[in-house]
Simulated scan of single mutants.
Amino acid sequence: MSTVTASYNVTPNEPTPNVSMGLSESDQVVRWTHAPTIYIYKENQTQNALERMRDSLSRILVHYYPLAGRLTWIEGGRVALNCNTKGVTLIEAESPKTMDDYGDITTNEKLMSELIPMVDYSQPIEELPLLLVQLTRLKGSSNQGLAIGVAISHVLCDGVAAITFINAWAKLTRGEALDSIEMFPFLDRTIINSTYPPRTPRFDHPALKPLPLKLGSTDTKEEQEKEKTSMMLRLTSQQVEKLKKKANDERPKKDEMSRPYSRYEVMEMCIKGT
C-alpha cells in the first residue's frame, strides 16, 4: 500500500482570466467523474525531479487554467465552469512495492487504486478539484521508478485533450519550450453555445435530473460502497481484423452498397451483442 508523504494545492504561477465558461449539452448530462490514467517511469527519480514537476505544473496551468477552476451550479439546474484558480491537488507518495509487484495493473483495480489519487465526491462540486495528480516513488531495490497517477475531470477533457495536457506538462518539466500551437488548449467556448447568454430552459429536461434511486433507498451510498470489479478483454490486431472481415462478409445484402463496417463499429457490435 502506498503512503502519502506530502500534499500540495498547485495554482497557476501567473494571473489568469477569472471568467465563467459554459459546458456543452453533453457535459450537462454525464456524471462528473474523473478519468484515471497512470504513467510509469522505470528510472529512479530524485526528489529534485518531483520539485521540477510541481514547478512545471504551476507554469502549465497558466495556459490550462480551467483545470485549476471548479464546477458550479447556475440557473436552470445547469453546471458551468468557474475559472477561479482554486488550484489542483498534487500528492507525493511512496510505495514499498517494485514494478514487478504491481505487474499488469490494468487487470487489478485494487493495485491500480494505490497509484491514482482518490477523489472525494462527497464534497460540493464547488470544492471538488478538477485535476488531481499522485506522484508515487516505487522503493523496490531492483526496479525503482516513478508512477504518475492522474485523475482529470471528464467534463473538461476528452482523451485527446487530456493527453495534450500531459505532453505539454512533460515538455515544461524537461525544460523544453511549448513550440507548437497543438500544445496549447483552445478555450473559446462560444463555438458550442446555442445561445448567448444561455436561456432558462422552457420545458422539463429529465436528462438533467439525478438518476432515480433504487427502490427502498434514500441515497446512493449503499450502491457506491459495493465492491466492484473491472475486466479488460485483450484482442490482437489479427483478431480484430478477423472479426471485421466476418462482420462485413455476413452483412445484410441491403447494406452492400454502403461503406464497410469500421473496426470501431465491429467492436461496438461485439460488446453490445448485436
Rank of each mutant, 00 (worst) to 15 (best):
A6L: 11
V10T: 12
G22Y: 12
L23T: 01
S24A: 05
S26V: 07
Q28C: 05
T37D: 12
T37G: 02
T37V: 15
T46K: 15
E51F: 00
M53E: 05
D55S: 08
S56H: 05
V62Y: 04
V62R: 10
L67V: 06
L67N: 07
L67Y: 11
G69C: 10
R70D: 10
L71G: 03
T72S: 11
W73K: 15
V79Y: 05
V79A: 08
L81A: 06
L81R: 10
N82T: 00
T85N: 14
V88G: 02
L90P: 00
E94F: 01
D100K: 05
D101Q: 14
Y102D: 08
M112E: 06
L115S: 00
Q123E: 09
I125L: 15
L128A: 04
Q134V: 10
R137N: 12
N143V: 01
N143K: 13
I152R: 08
D158W: 06
V160Y: 13
R174V: 03
D188A: 02
R189P: 00
T195F: 00
P198F: 03
R199F: 03
F203T: 00
A207C: 08
K209R: 13
P210H: 05
L213M: 03
D219F: 10
T220L: 11
E223T: 04
E225W: 05
K226Y: 02
E227M: 04
R234L: 09
T236P: 02
Q238R: 09
Q238M: 11
V240I: 14
K244H: 03
N248L: 07
E250S: 12
P252Y: 05
P252E: 03
E256Y: 14
M257T: 09
S262A: 07
E265V: 00
E265D: 13
M269Q: 06
M269S: 15
M269I: 04
